[in-house]
Amino acid sequence: MTATMPINDPPPLLTVDGLTKHYDRHVGCAAVSFTLWPGEVLGLVGESGSGKTTLLACLAGRLTPSAGAVRFRTRAGAVVDVHRVAEPERRRLMRTEWGLVHQTPRDGLRLDVSAGANIGERLLTAGERHYGRIRATALDWLAAVEIDQARIDHRPSTFSGGMQQRLQIARTLVNRPQLVYMDEPTGGLDVSVQARLLDLLRRLVSDLGLAAVLVTHDLGVVRLLSDRLIVMRAGRVVEAGLTDQVLDDPQHPYTQLLVSSVLSV
């Protein structure tokens, strides 16, 4: 009996190699490496200050790492080094190939324009010029994220926190990215609102075949959404593996502490 690897594995979507970010006095993240395949959801957990958000910013091309590389495979099949491409190209990739859902919806939305414009703006920058199609797509996405379509002309400043977060998700997904980065997407929301958002994210990720990197400190959220898990502490990866394996049979002392500190996951 030999255990052989399948030869028909698709090429990875994202290859992260030795990613390190130093700040003046401390380490943001250090020597982080992992591979993500199309359609896979990876959870990044660890307490505040463990380097999750720094890592996410480096992955998404918003922060330049001190060392290491992030390689992304585009729809066209080209593998680009996210931090080595020219700035205009990186901005284009950030709009079309991947998206970022901020923890605070206000950071990912324009509060001074309507909900429809928040969604439509992304289509405009992608080259769509037909007003009727833009509005129809915006309406579709409002429905997809369970926002009353009658609110299309309202500004998001009049929305609840949960609605703002869902609008941000629609704005991020409207261009159909291959990968979405999410920074504590349920943080700051009421528990009942969280459940609705989690269900929505779960459905969207599965229906659209999206890959995702999900930063959270909530082990229940990763249990629900992620296939694999990376546990970080003080900027370093201390444990990685299948989500249920890491949560049910944690090996590292820090992971054991995290898991045993939660009432029930």
Binding site: A3, P6, G241, L242
Partner: peptide, 20 residues
């Protein structure tokens, strides 16, 4: 060793994607 399709996979050493 688990018989998976027409092959054997060792769950102890298989990478997460394979286990899934």
């Amino acid at each position: 060793a688990v018989r998976h399709r027409d092959d054997w996979v060792d769950l102890v050493t298989a990478p997460p994607r394979r286990v899934l």
